[in-house]
Design a binder for these strands. Structure first.
Lengths: 204, 204, 204, 204
DNA sequence: AACTAATCGAGACGGTACGTCCCGTCTTAGA
DNA sequence: TCTAAGACGGGACGTACCGTCTCGATTAGTT
C-alpha cells in the first residue's frame, strides 16, 4: 500500500526486512488487536529501525494492510466444483467462515482505517475485493451458461446482493454470519421475492 | 451513547450546553472531517470546558455519534405510500441519496470508530439501524399481506439483501450508490436469479 | 531561560513541578553528564510529562541552564573582608575551587551549548556573569578608594584580566586552576609587567 | 584529529578525497554554521561516500577541527618586528581581528564540541593553542632580554593574562574584541594595577 | 587485453532522541 | 456548587542524524 518509489540504487539491503515487518505486523495485530499496537511495536518485533518501516509505508495502517494482503490474501482460494452454483455456495460459506475467524476482526480494523484513507481503501479494493468479485462474476456467468441462472441478470448487482449482506453483518454486527444465514441468503437470492404468479389461474 | 449517570445533585445548569456540544460536534465534523477534529475543538466551539463534555460522553466518537443520532436521525422519515412496495422503493432511494450526502461520510466515520468500540456499535445499531430495519420489515410484511411478495420469505435476510449492498458500496467504495443502482437492485430482489422454467417444455 | 510567556489564567497547577524539573535536571546532569541525559530522562525523573517541560523551556539546554542558575547560582557568595583586595583574592580562590568542583564541568557544558544558542548565552551572562562582575567591579572600586589600586585603571579590563584566565583554563584545559595559579595571577595583576625603572639611576 | 590508522593495503586512491572533505567541511560550516550541517552534508558536498569520511575521522567535529587546523591554521602568522613588545601587540590585534572574522564563530563551535570530547580538546590545544602560546612566550622572553619586561614574571601566567581575556570575550560574549580593548589590555598588562608608591613620602 | 582485488559512491540500515499532538484527568479562579 | 479554561501525566507519532553495513561500479595492478 502506497509503497514509496524505489530508489535507483542503494536498493534495500535485503527483502528479508520487508517480510519480517509484514510478519511482525500480522502477528502483533492478530494477537493484540489493531488499536493496541504501535509502529514502534512492529519495528521492534521485526528487529528493524522505525525509519526502515517509514521508508516503505506511510503509517501503521498501510503496513498492516500490506501484511494482510500479501500474507493472508493468497491463502484463500476459490473452491472448484463441476457445477458453478455449487462452487458459488461453497465460496460463500468459505467467506463466512473466514469472517468468523480472527481475520474477520482484522478486516474490520482495516476497513475502519480505510474510511479515512483513500489510499488504503483503494488497496483493499484492488487487491482483495476486486479479485474475489471477478471470481464470483466468472462463476455467475458460468452458472448462466450452464442454464442455472437467468441470462438477463446484472452480474455486479447480483454480486452485491450476495456479498453485501456478509460485509454488512461483519461491519454492523447485526447478526451472525452463520452457515444457516448463507443458506437462507443463497436460497432467496435464487428464488427472488416476487410471489409465484399462477399461469392459468382458471386452470386451478 | 454511553452517557454517564446523571450527577446526583446540582442538576445541569442548563441543557443548552448539551445541545451546544452536539451542534458543535456535528458542525465541525461535517466541515472538517472526523479525524481532523479533536475533543478540544468541540469543547472550544461549544464554549464549554472539556470536563463538561467528558462528564457526559466518554470520548469524541460518542459525542459525534450522539450528535448524529439526535440531530440527524429524526430528520429522515420513512416515506408513506398506499402500495407497500412503492414505499419500500422510495425508502431505498431516500437512503441512497442520504448516503450520497455529507452524512454518508459521517456514517462512514462513525462505523469506522464502531469497529473498535462495541458501545458505539451498539448505539448505532439500536438507534439507527434497528429502527429503520423494523420499518423495512413492517413494510415487507405489508407487501406480503398485499400479495406482492412471497409469503414464505425470511424478512431479516430480505432486509439484508436490500440494505447490505448499500452499506457495502458506502464502506467499500466499489460503486456509486445511484438511483440506477437502486432500480437494478430492487428489480433483481423481486425477480430472483433462477431461470424461468418452461411449464410445458415439449410445447416449445 | 527563555521561559515562555505566562498565560493569563489556568496557571501552572503548582510551582512544585517547576522545581521538581530543575532538581531532576541538575541531579541527572551532575551524575551522568550533560550529553548523556535526554529530555525524557529529566521528565521521567521529575515525574512529569514531556509537554510540561516543553511548555516552560524550549529544550534541554535551557532547563539545565535554569537549574544551574536557580539552584546553584544563589549558593555562591562574595566573601566579605575589611580589606577590599583580600576579599577579591578570596573570591578568586572561591571561583577557582568552584571550577574544580563538579560544577566546573557543568559550566563547561552550558557554555558549550551557549555557543550555538544566543538565548542561552544571554541568560548565562545576565544571571551568572554580570552579577559576579559587578561584585568584582565594586570591590575593585573599593580597593581604589582604599588606596590599594591605581585610580586610573579600566575596571572592566581589570576584571577581564582576572577572570578571563580562569575561564580560559576551564574551557581550554591548558592548565590547572589551582590556588598557586590564583596567587601568581593576583601577584602579576597587581604588579604589572613593566620593569621597575630606577628613579635616580645614578643614586644607586 | 584522531585520524584512524592508515589501511594496510589498497592505499587511498587519492589524497584528493582527503582535501575535498576538509574543504567541503570548512566551506559548509563557514556558510551555514556548525550545528546546521551533518556528516551527510559534508560527504555529499565532497562527492564522497560516508564510509570514506568515517574511515579517516570519528565524527563531524573531528573533520571540522582538522579542516580548521589544516586549512586555516597555517594562514595566521606571528608578526615580526624588531621590538619584541611591538610584535606582541601586533599579534594581539591580529588575534582580535581573527576572532572578529567568520573564524571566530568557527572557533566557538569547535571549542563547544571540545568541552565534551577530550580528543578534540587535545587536538585544539596541541595544534592551535600551544604553538601560538610558545610563540608568545618566546616573544615575552625576548622582551625581557631587551629589558622591556620584568625578568621575574611567570611567562605562562603572563600569557594567560593576555589571551585569556580574548577567549573570555569570544566565548562569553561579554564585550567586543576591538582594537581599543586590546590597547587597554596591553597597557594595563604592562603597568599593573598597584598604585605608584611615592619613593620619598616625606619629600612630598 | 583480460582478469582480479581493493576501494569507492551511494545510501539502506538499527538505533536514539527529538519535539509535537492528542487523550482523558485534574486544578484553579470566578460566577 | 458548578463551570471555562487549560495544565497535567502519559504515550504514540513521524523526523533527523548518527555511525555501521551492503551493494554494484570503477579502477589499478597483475597476468
Amino acid at each position: 500500500v502506497n509503497q514509496k518509489g524505489k530508489p535507483q540504487h542503494g536498493r534495500p539491503r535485503s527483502a528479508l526486512a520487508h517480510n519480517a515487518i509484514l510478519r511482525a505486523a500480522l502477528h502483533l495485530v492478530s494477537a493484540r488487536g489493531f488499536r493496541a499496537i504501535t509502529v514502534d511495536h512492529i519495528a521492534a518485533e521485526a528487529g528493524v529501525g522505525k525509519m526502515t518501516l517509514y521508508r516503505r509505508w506511510p503509517n501503521k495502517s498501510a503496513v498492516v494492510m500490506d501484511a494482510f494482503l500479501e500474507l493472508v490474501g493468497p491463502q484463500t482460494e476459490f473452491p472448484a466444483a463441476s457445477q458453478a452454483l455449487r462452487s458459488l455456495r461453497q465460496q460463500l460459506k468459505l467467506q463466512a467462515s473466514f469472517f468468523r475467524s480472527k481475520y474477520g476482526r482484522l478486516i474490520r480494523s482495516l476497513l475502519a482505517e480505510a474510511q479515512a484513507d483513500e489510499e488504503l481503501a483503494r488497496a483493499f479494493r484492488d487487491r482483495w475485493i476486486y479479485p474475489r468479485r471477478s471470481g464470483v462474476v466468472r462463476i455467475l456467468q458460468m452458472a448462466i451458461d450452464q442454464g442455472h441462472l437467468r441470462h438477463d441478470i446484472d452480474l455486479e448487482i447480483a454480486t452485491d446482493m450476495l456479498y453485501g449482506p456478509l460485509y454488512y453483518r461483519l461491519l454492523l454486527g447485526t447478526g451472525a454470519i452463520s452457515d444457516d444465514f448463507i443458506d437462507g441468503l443463497y436460497k432467496q437470492f435464487l428464488a427472488g421475492h416476487r410471489p409465484i404468479k399462477l399461469r392459468n389461474p382458471r386452470a386451478a
